[in-house]
Design a binder for these strands. Structure first.
Lengths: 341, 341
DNA sequence: TTGTATGCGTTATCAC
DNA sequence: GTGATAACGCATACAA
């Protein structure tokens, strides 16, 4: 049994394809109730379903949006997607989700595939530091929102939705100084050449300079737990005065806790402990961990809303400037104070 | 500047569209190196990208797979997707991801949309108890894999990939009996009419009967924390003998821990505590929580592999039986023993 | 209120 | 080796 087409419906319902097409698209304006009912019955009987591919050929819009996240197994990415989906689905857009796995090559291929799909818009958590990497998107005139991470030299005509990484970390540094901390040991893990963590380090560094704290960074990257343990152990051994240990991303906190447990280091007695983004669980670790929390769902929602604005503002004929509605949006980072500092 | 088509390339490169099409599809068999180079240059210069929609019209395959998960903000779903994507992407398939939000109505609409997209296959974490709900998929002859949850009366010709919920819970019950527990208090939370949790309860109930333990269930569903606290408090107050509290899903453990903290109930001193699926974090809660762990990524991988088998086995002409390669697969559940019991 | 005819960008079947 | 042309399923300008 071959695919049921609009022509089959027309024949069975004794009307023209035009009328069926109007019916499918809800243009009941000029259509007798009789015809309408008859078509409805035929559609149900034959289980007709319009071919999305065929409509796309005739229309300028696919009603599909592409999303590329850096690591879908990271809760951050999945909550980000959740927010995006919550906005796009009710608006009638389907989503193709891709996982760049923090790899710039992979991301490049995925952008290509999504552009080939002629998506109506693109939301990307980028892996490349240089905006030039994303130029093909611009020259295809596809609406675009960059989310979570910041590329250098991104034109103002391209949207960006990020957390207030630098400033929140500067304030964190000041708070720690106020509490009497003299050293900051910052643990980061980036698998991509661009990351929000760089801005967090910058913010902390500013605070450290202003308040005369010593600041050291440990880049865990792809090193294993033993490496991290040696690194943290040695660092703490050589520091005088009160030290705060800061984990710059959620999943890294797992590893840091493992190290502290093995080394028998207590918090807040021996050191102060701070982390980014724990996704709710760390409150049950001892008396809770001092946190800086982003709102990934809100990031996603804002990104999606802006994308929809772009898609709509260019007009149905697609002649308008696709980037007219672009915006740069910065969302706050929330502090959850706990006795771990 | 309008969209660049195959015709533009043909004109600029002084060849026919046929030749360009051959080039695009890598049929260099009969093509002079000169032509090949010239086309390549033109493609690069005009930034030509083939239209996926147009190809689909001519081919029987879209190379797009649809995935519907129950709740993408739950780590289970995102790891499931991760596994699925890890198999499909290298195989050249794009993925449309939808979130049914545990709502059967929503799911129904999403299936419809995906079938309209003429996806090559569908992976669903189902919300409906009755398989009949998914009949439209079968009559459209779309390859299908049901994952994580089991519907009643699902025909053997339709694939299913699930965890060994019932048996792992029976064994858990026996272990608890061996350890001297006399009562089981089981806390569940289902937002959908079908859930893996029902099978877990069944497994525990069998063990309770065999080993003469008392078993009570608390269905938290959409109740709030206060309700749960009253319910757990009252239940524990009325029980004599050693009691094990079992949380049947990962996120629920958050709420259970909150209750125990408020009520000042200690584990394993006052009660034994067991949970499903914590996603690594609960080891840092006191000395760790006794766990039953699924492997959502593996579930996803297996589901995707089977889907690919189905897609491939039906042959390119799509005349074969789409469900010839269907399978029922059950994956083991791992026990992580910790001193919380 | 309904119908006819054309084209969207691509691939496949022929021909040359 | 290469090219002309007919589909694929749908939406719409134009007719009636």
């Amino acid at each position: 049994m071959a695919k049921v087409t609009i022509a089959d419906i027309a024949r069975e319902a004794q009307v023209s394809v035009t009328t069926v097409s109007r019916f499918i698209n809800g243009n009941y304006g000029k259509m007798s109730q009789t015809t309408r009912d008859r078509i409805q019955q035929t559609v149900d009987r034959l289980e007709y379903r319009p071919s999305a591919s065929a409509r796309r050929m005739r229309q300028q819009s696919t009603h599909v949006v592409g999303v590329i996240v850096a690591d879908i197994s990271n809760v951050f990415s999945s909550l980000l997607f959740n927010g995006i989906y919550a906005e796009l689905q009710p608006a009638g857009y389907d989503v193709m989700l891709m996982n760049s796995n923090n790899a710039i090559e992979q991301e490049h291929g995925e952008i290509d595939r999504l552009l080939s799909q002629e998506v109506d818009g693109l939301i990307i958590q980028p892996n490349s530091r240089r905006f030039a990497t994303y130029e093909p998107i611009i020259s295809s005139r596809t609406p675009l929102v960059m989310v979570d991470r910041e590329t250098t030299d991104q034109p103002e005509t391209v949207s960006k939705v990020v957390s207030d990484n630098e400033d929140s970390c500067r304030r964190l540094g000041e708070t720690l100084a106020d509490l009497g901390y003299e050293n900051l040991v910052v643990v980061s893990r980036t698998r991509s050449e661009v990351s929000a963590q760089a801005l967090r380090i910058a913010g902390l560094r500013r605070a450290a300079e202003e308040r005369h704290m010593l600041m050291l960074t440990i880049e865990a990257d792809s090193h294993d737990g033993d490496w991290l343990q040696r690194e943290i152990g040695t660092t703490l051994d050589h520091l005088n005065g009160r030290t705060a240990l800061i984990s710059l991303m959620g999943p890294l906190l797992f590893d840091v806790l493992a190290v502290l447990r093995t080394l028998g280091i207590r918090y807040p007695q021996d050191i102060g402990l701070v982390s980014f983004d724990d996704w709710r669980w760390s409150q049950y670790v001892q008396d809770g961990i001092y946190l800086l929390e982003q709102d990934p769902q809100l990031l996603g929602r804002q990104a999606a809303r802006n994308l929809l604005d772009q898609i709509r503002s260019r007009g149905d004929d697609k002649t308008g400037d696709p980037y007219a509605a672009s915006q740069w949006i910065t969302l706050p980072v929330t502090t959850v104070a706990s006795p771990s500092v």
